Computed example of a mutant assay.
Amino acid sequence: MKLQLHLGNTVSGDHSLKSLNLMLVFQVNCPGCLSRALPELNQLSLQFPEVNAFAMSTAFENFNLNTEVNTRALVGCGELTLSSKRYFSRLGCNSLPYQIQVPVVMDAFLAEDKLSRLKDGVLGQVDSDSLSPAAKGKLCDILDHRFVPLVRTGRTFINNDLQGTPSWFIFDDQLNVLDSWFGHKEEKWVESVLKSHMAGLMK
Rank of each mutant, 00 (worst) to 15 (best):
M1K: 12
K2E: 08
L3M: 14
Q4S: 15
Q4D: 13
Q4W: 02
L5H: 09
L7Q: 09
L7E: 10
T10V: 08
S12M: 05
G13I: 13
G13R: 02
H15W: 11
H15Q: 14
L17V: 13
S19R: 14
M23H: 00
M23N: 00
V25I: 11
F26S: 01
V28M: 04
V28T: 08
V28Y: 00
C30P: 03
R36S: 12
A37W: 01
A37E: 03
Q43R: 12
L44I: 05
L44D: 00
S45Q: 07
L46Q: 12
Q47H: 11
F48L: 11
P49H: 13
E50D: 12
V51W: 02
N52I: 02
M56C: 13
M56F: 04
S57R: 04
S57F: 10
T58F: 08
F60H: 15
E61W: 13
E61R: 14
T67Q: 10
E68W: 01
V69R: 06
N70I: 12
T71Y: 07
R72H: 07
V75T: 03
V75W: 00
G76N: 08
C77S: 13
T81Q: 11
S84A: 15
F88A: 02
R90C: 09
L91G: 07
N94F: 03
N94T: 09
S95L: 05
L96E: 02
P97G: 09
Y98E: 04
V102E: 06
V104P: 00
V104F: 05
V104C: 02
M106D: 01
M106A: 05
A108H: 04
A108V: 04
F109V: 04
F109Y: 11
L110A: 03
E112M: 10
K114Y: 11
R117H: 13
R117Q: 12
L118D: 05
L118R: 06
D120V: 00
G121V: 04
V122W: 11
L123K: 08
L123M: 15
D127R: 14
S128G: 05
S130E: 01
P133F: 06
D141S: 15
I142W: 07
H145D: 06
V148C: 04
P149L: 08
L150E: 09
R152T: 13
G154W: 00
R155E: 14
R155W: 04
I158D: 01
N159L: 07
N159C: 11
N160Q: 09
L162R: 09
Q163K: 11
Q163R: 10
Q163N: 12
Q163P: 00
T165I: 06
T165W: 03
S167C: 08
F171I: 08
D172C: 06
W181D: 02
F182G: 01
G183H: 10
G183L: 15
K185H: 14
K188A: 15
S192G: 09
K195W: 15
L201H: 13
L201Y: 13
M202D: 14
